[in-house]
Write a protein that binds this DNA or RNA. Structure first.
Lengths: 335, 335
DNA sequence: TCTTTCTCCGTTATCGTTATTATTTATTTT
DNA sequence: AAAATAAATAATAACGATAACGGAGAAAGA
C-alpha cells in the first residue's frame, strides 16, 4: 500500500503539499495540484484513515448498543442511525449486547479506548462498568427509544410513550371494552412504566381499573406474548382486550388466542406497539402504535454528533409523536 | 485522557515497561508489575487503541455489507458474524447498502483506507468501484448467503440452495401438486437461479413442467410477495401451490390469498424460505426451509479472519445443510 | 526602490503505542 | 572472585498523516 511519502516523491513535492492537496485543494497552485493528483492516480494512493484518525484523536465512529439486532424495530432504528452517521462521515460499530451487562461493558468500553467517539444506548441500562464510571462521564452518549433508569444526565430521544398508551386505552374504551389485560415488557424498563401509567390514567378517568391479575410481564418476544395470552385466557374472568407493549408479543398473543379457537377481534381485541412491517400483514392486521423508528435513530445520531462536536445538545428530552394505526385486530366489545 | 507516558512517569519506569506489563505481564518483574498496575489504576489509564491499531497497521474491524439490516434473516446472519468477531477481538462496522452500488462502494472503500481489515458481502455484487479494482484485489473478502456473480475468486459460505429448493419441490409433488407457481427474488441473484434450478430439476424428474407464466419476480419483500400472489391468482389457470423464495414474500402471498377469500393450504399451498422467527407464528404457520442463519454468519466471519491472518481459507465453497420445516401452510392438493 | 502583503510550499514536531536494540542489573558458572 | 549468562528495563525509532511555523518569491502599495 502506497503512502503519502511515495506520492510526494513521485510528484516532487513535500508530504505537506500532498496532504493539503487532498484536504483543501484551494491551498495549492493548479499546476502542483495536477501533478499531485496525477501521482495519486498512478500510485492508487488512498490516505490511511487509521493514521488520520490517530492524528486527529478521533475515530469517526460511534458504537450502537442494541439488545438484539434481529428485532425489527431496533433494526429500523439502526437504519436511521446509520443514515445520519453516513451523512456526516461517521461509521457505525454494531454492539449487539444480547441484553447482557458484560457485553454492554465491553462495547461501551470502546468509547474509552478511542475506538468510538460516542455511543447510543438503545437499552435502559447505564452501559459502563462500575470501575469505568469516572472516565465514562466524559463520553458523549445518547439514549434512544429507552431511558436509562435513575439517570437524567444523558439526552434521550424517545416516543411519547405515555401519550401513546393513553391513545390505545381511549381507543379500547371507545370500543366498549371494560376489562382489559396488558402484556408488558420487563418491569425494569422505564418505557414500560410510562406506557402503563398512560394506559391506567385513561382507565381511571373512565372509572375503570386495571385488574392486577390481568397484568403480565413479557420479554418483547413472540413466545412471551403467546405465554402471556395463555395466562390471561386462563384467568378467572379473561379480558375482552389485550394491550401488548410491542408487536411481536401481540403477534404471539394472537397466535395463541386463535390456537384456543377464539377469534380476534371477535372474542378478544389485541393491540400492539411499534408498527413493524409485519403488523399489517398479520391476520387480522394489527392495530398498533406507529413509532417513527428511523427518525428516532436519526435524531439520536444527530444529537450525539452535536455532543461529539462539543456543543451541548439542543434538548435533553426529545419526545416524538406517535400515531395510532387502527387496523382489524381491535373491534367492538361483545361481552 | 491519560496516556502511557503518564503511567510510566507515575510508576517510575519507561513507557516500554508499561507497554510490556499490559501486553505480557510475565516479561516484567513482580514488583514493577505491581507498581505499574497501581499507576494504571490511579490514572484510570486505558490504552488508546486508535494508536495501537495505527501502530500495528490493522483496525481489528471488519465491515459487513448488507442490503437491509431490517431484514430478519440478514440480521440473524449479522448476529452470527458479530459473535464470531467479538470472540476474536474484532468489531463489526455496519454497512447498510440499501442495495445501492454507491453505498457499496463507499463501505467497501473502508477496507482500502485501513478502516477495516476485511469485508463480508451479503449481496451478490462485487462491491468495489471500478477504479478500485486493482487495490481491492488484496482485500480479504468473503461472500455469505449470496454469491458474487461471475467471480469465483472469493470464498463463499452459503446454503445448499439447489438442494433446498429440490426438497421443497419434492414435498409439494408428494402432496399431489402438479401446477406450481414460483415467486423468485431479483433475477440477477445467483441463489435465485440455484433455487430455481433445484426446483425445476425435481419437476422435470416428475414429468411436470414449470409454466413460464407462473414464474414471477419478487424483491424479497412482503409487498412484492403480495403482488406476486395477485399475479399468480389472476392467471388463466392459477397454481395449486406457490414456492416463495423467502418468508417475507410467503407472508405477503398468504395475506393476499386470504384477502381474496381463498384458504391456505385449502385452496393453495404456500412454502417459504429462511425460517425467520415470524414463520411459525403465522396463520397458518409457514412451511419453509430453515437456514442456519447465525452459523452462516459465524462461518463467514471465521473464514474472513483466517484470510486476514494471512492463511488461505480452508475451503472456497462452504455449503451448509438446510432443513425442510413442514408446518401448516402446505397441504394435499385438492384439485 | 523599498516595504508590505499574500500565495505557495517545505521542514519538522506531534499524536500514543509497539518493536527493536542497547544497557543495566541479577544470577549462575567456573 | 571473575566471567559468562540471563533477566529486566531503558532509549529510541518507527507507523502515516496533520498542523504549526517559517521561508521564498511574487504582487501590490508607498
Amino acid at each position: 500500500m502506497s503512502n503519502i511519502r511515495e506520492v510526494a516523491r513521485l510528484s516532487g513535492v513535500s508530504v505537506a503539499t500532498v496532504s493539503r492537496t487532498l484536504k483543501d485543494p484551494r491551498l495549492v497552485s493548479p499546476q502542483t495540484r495536477e501533478r499531485v493528483l496525477k501521482a495519486v492516480e498512478e500510485t492508487g494512493y488512498r490516505p490511511n484513515l487509521l493514521a488520520r484518525n490517530f492524528s486527529s484523536g478521533k475515530s469517526y465512529a460511534v458504537v450502537v448498543l442494541v439488545p438484539n439486532v434481529a428485532n425489527p424495530f431496533f433494526s429500523k432504528v439502526i437504519r436511521g442511525i446509520e443514515q445520519a452517521a453516513q451523512d456526516q462521515g461517521y461509521s457505525v460499530l454494531l454492539g449487539d449486547t444480547q441484553g447482557k451487562p458484560e457485553r454492554e461493558h465491553f462495547y461501551a468500553g470502546m468509547a474509552l479506548t478511542s475506538q468510538a467517539d460516542g455511543l447510543i444506548q438503545l437499552d435502559c441500562r447505564y452501559p459502563f462498568a462500575e470501575k469505568d464510571m469516572a472516565l465514562a462521564a466524559s463520553v458523549p452518549m445518547v439514549n434512544a427509544c429507552e431511558r436509562i433508569a435513575d439517570d437524567a444526565s444523558y439526552p434521550v430521544v424517545e416516543l411519547d410513550n405515555r401519550g401513546a398508551a393513553s391513545a390505545v386505552a381511549r381507543h379500547l374504551v371507545a370500543l366498549g371494552h371494560r376489562r382489559m389485560g396488558v402484556i408488558t415488557g420487563p418491569a425494569t424498563s422505564p418505557i414500560v412504566r410510562d406506557r402503563l401509567a398512560g394506559f391506567c390514567e385513561v382507565l381511571r378517568a373512565s372509572n375503570l381499573e386495571l385488574d392486577e391479575s390481568l397484568l403480565v410481564n413479557g420479554e418483547f418476544t413472540m413466545s412471551s406474548g403467546a405465554r402471556g395470552a395463555e395466562t390471561l385466557l386462563s384467568a378467572n374472568r379473561p379480558p375482552s382486550a389485550i394491550f401488548c407493549m410491542n408487536d411481536e408479543m401481540a403477534i404471539g398473543a394472537i397466535h395463541q388466542i386463535k390456537k384456543k379457537g377464539l377469534s380476534v377481534p371477535g372474542d378478544i381485541s389485541v393491540v400492539g406497539f411499534d408498527n413493524i412491517e409485519f403488523a399489517s400483514f398479520m391476520d387480522p392486521p394489527l392495530t398498533t402504535i406507529d413509532q417513527p423508528a428511523e427518525e428516532l435513530g436519526r435524531r439520536a445520531m444527530e444529537t450525539l454528533l452535536q455532543m461529539i462536536a462539543g456543543n451541548p445538545p439542543e434538548q435533553k428530552r426529545a419526545k416524538l409523536a406517535f400515531d395510532l394505526v387502527i387496523r382489524e385486530s381491535s373491534g367492538e366489545c361483545r361481552d
